[in-house]
């Protein structure tokens, strides 16, 4: 079991580092999120793996998992969320200021080629002519 968990951490770290080193902001945010997962799980396992023994005091309990790493990781998860949120908004800000999403502010780096458009799936869907946002208008307008 320990080997399995160590492998999981390793795979997440590899993926996280690789994505963190990419040039566009979105993969970087994904990469850092993955790294945060890896770090959280790593910290959590420092209390060793225990199955079915939550750290809730109970006279009938046979033993307890280590509560200290759990408490640390709990806040770490929330902080990681705060960091991810901040990062992604920073990415948006950079996009707004620089006009692109390259981490160095380049429109197209020397080692990149423009993304090829995938084939359009169903031309029939083009009939809709309006654009909307995810959550911009209030619902009054939709009411019949």
């Amino acid at each position: 079991m320990e080997l399995l968990i160590a492998l999981v951490i390793g795979v997440m770290t590899t993926a996280g580092v690789y994505l963190t080193l990419r040039a566009r902001t979105f993969p970087v945010v994904l990469g850092l999120t993955l790294l945060a997962y890896a770090v959280n799980v790593f910290l959590f396992t420092m209390g060793r793996l225990t199955i079915g023994q939550p750290a809730v005091i109970d006279a009938a309990a046979a033993g307890y998992g280590d509560p200290l790493p759990q408490a640390l990781v709990l806040t770490a998860i929330v902080i990681a969320f705060g960091m991810t949120a901040f990062l992604i908004v920073l990415a948006l800000k950079a996009r707004g200021e620089l006009g692109n999403d390259h981490v160095d502010g380049l429109h197209l780096a020397p080692d990149e080629v423009p993304y090829e458009k995938p084939e359009q799936i169903k031309p029939s869907q083009q009939t809709q002519v309006t654009e909307t946002t995810m959550n911009s208008q209030s619902n009054q307008e939709v009411k019949p």
Partner: peptide, 22 residues
């Protein structure tokens, strides 16, 4: 919360990631 947040943000980022050839 994270996924909702990233979805919201994704809307404003370029939809395409240029292909890397380096």
């Amino acid at each position: 919360v994270t996924i909702v947040l990233l979805l919201l943000a994704l809307y404003f980022l370029p939809q395409k990631t240029p292909k890397e050839i380096g």
